[in-house]
Amino acid sequence: MKRPSPRRLLTAALWLTLPLGTVACNAAMTDQELALGEAASYVVASEESGDIGGDAVADADAAALDSFTTEAVDTVTVAPVDDGSPCDFSARRQQVLEKYDDNQNGQLDRAELRELRADIGEGGPARQRLAQLGRRARHQAFWRVRWAFDEDGSRSLSTEERSALVDAMEARCERLRAERLEQYDANGDGQLDEAERQAARDAVRAKWEQKRQELLTKYDANGNGVLDSQEREQIRLDWQAKAQERRAALLAQYDTNGDGSLSTAEALPLRQEIQRRIIEGHDAG
Rank of each mutant, 00 (worst) to 15 (best):
residue 1 M to W: 08
residue 1 M to E: 10
residue 3 R to D: 13
residue 3 R to K: 15
residue 5 S to I: 09
residue 6 P to H: 15
residue 7 R to L: 15
residue 7 R to N: 14
residue 7 R to D: 15
residue 7 R to G: 15
residue 8 R to C: 06
residue 10 L to A: 08
residue 11 T to V: 15
residue 13 A to D: 14
residue 17 T to C: 05
residue 19 P to K: 10
residue 20 L to E: 11
residue 20 L to V: 05
residue 21 G to W: 04
residue 24 A to V: 10
residue 24 A to D: 14
residue 28 A to F: 10
residue 31 D to W: 01
residue 34 L to M: 09
residue 35 A to R: 00
residue 39 A to V: 01
residue 40 A to T: 05
residue 44 V to Y: 03
residue 45 A to C: 12
residue 46 S to R: 03
residue 53 G to S: 06
residue 55 D to P: 01
residue 60 A to K: 00
residue 62 A to M: 01
residue 68 F to G: 03
residue 68 F to A: 09
residue 68 F to T: 03
residue 68 F to V: 07
residue 69 T to Q: 07
residue 74 D to W: 05
residue 75 T to K: 08
residue 76 V to K: 08
residue 77 T to A: 10
residue 79 A to M: 09
residue 79 A to G: 00
residue 80 P to M: 01
residue 81 V to W: 00
residue 83 D to V: 11
residue 86 P to F: 04
residue 87 C to N: 02
residue 88 D to Y: 00
residue 89 F to G: 06
residue 92 R to L: 13
residue 93 R to A: 07
residue 94 Q to F: 01
residue 94 Q to C: 02
residue 96 V to I: 09
residue 100 Y to A: 07
residue 100 Y to L: 13
residue 102 D to K: 13
residue 104 Q to N: 15
residue 104 Q to A: 15
residue 105 N to P: 02
residue 107 Q to H: 14
residue 110 R to Q: 12
residue 111 A to V: 13
residue 114 R to W: 05
residue 118 A to H: 11
residue 123 G to P: 13
residue 124 G to I: 02
residue 127 R to M: 04
residue 129 R to L: 09
residue 130 L to C: 00
residue 132 Q to T: 03
residue 132 Q to V: 05
residue 133 L to F: 01
residue 136 R to C: 03
residue 137 A to D: 05
residue 139 H to M: 01
residue 141 A to I: 01
residue 142 F to P: 00
residue 147 W to D: 04
residue 150 D to R: 10
residue 150 D to G: 11
residue 154 S to M: 02
residue 154 S to Y: 00
residue 155 R to N: 03
residue 156 S to V: 09
residue 157 L to I: 03
residue 160 E to S: 08
residue 160 E to A: 12
residue 162 R to N: 07
residue 163 S to K: 09
residue 163 S to T: 13
residue 164 A to W: 01
residue 166 V to G: 08
residue 170 E to F: 09
residue 178 A to Y: 03
residue 179 E to H: 05
residue 181 L to I: 07
residue 183 Q to M: 15
residue 183 Q to Y: 10
residue 186 A to W: 02
residue 187 N to A: 08
residue 191 Q to V: 01
residue 193 D to S: 08
residue 196 E to G: 07
residue 196 E to H: 10
residue 199 A to N: 07
residue 201 R to N: 07
residue 202 D to L: 14
residue 204 V to Y: 04
residue 205 R to L: 14
residue 205 R to Y: 07
residue 207 K to E: 12
residue 208 W to R: 13
residue 211 K to V: 05
residue 214 E to F: 04
residue 217 T to F: 02
residue 217 T to P: 00
residue 218 K to Q: 14
residue 221 A to W: 04
residue 221 A to I: 14
residue 223 G to H: 07
residue 223 G to Q: 08
residue 224 N to S: 08
residue 225 G to I: 11
residue 227 L to W: 10
residue 233 E to L: 08
residue 234 Q to N: 07
residue 234 Q to L: 10
residue 235 I to V: 15
residue 239 W to T: 06
residue 244 Q to I: 09
residue 246 R to L: 15
residue 247 R to D: 04
residue 249 A to K: 12
residue 249 A to P: 01
residue 250 L to V: 04
residue 252 A to K: 15
residue 257 N to W: 07
residue 259 D to P: 00
residue 260 G to Q: 02
residue 262 L to E: 11
residue 263 S to F: 00
residue 263 S to Y: 02
residue 264 T to Q: 13
residue 265 A to K: 13
residue 266 E to A: 13
residue 266 E to S: 13
residue 267 A to F: 01
residue 268 L to G: 10
residue 273 E to K: 11
residue 274 I to W: 09
residue 275 Q to L: 06
residue 278 I to V: 15
residue 278 I to E: 09
residue 279 I to M: 12
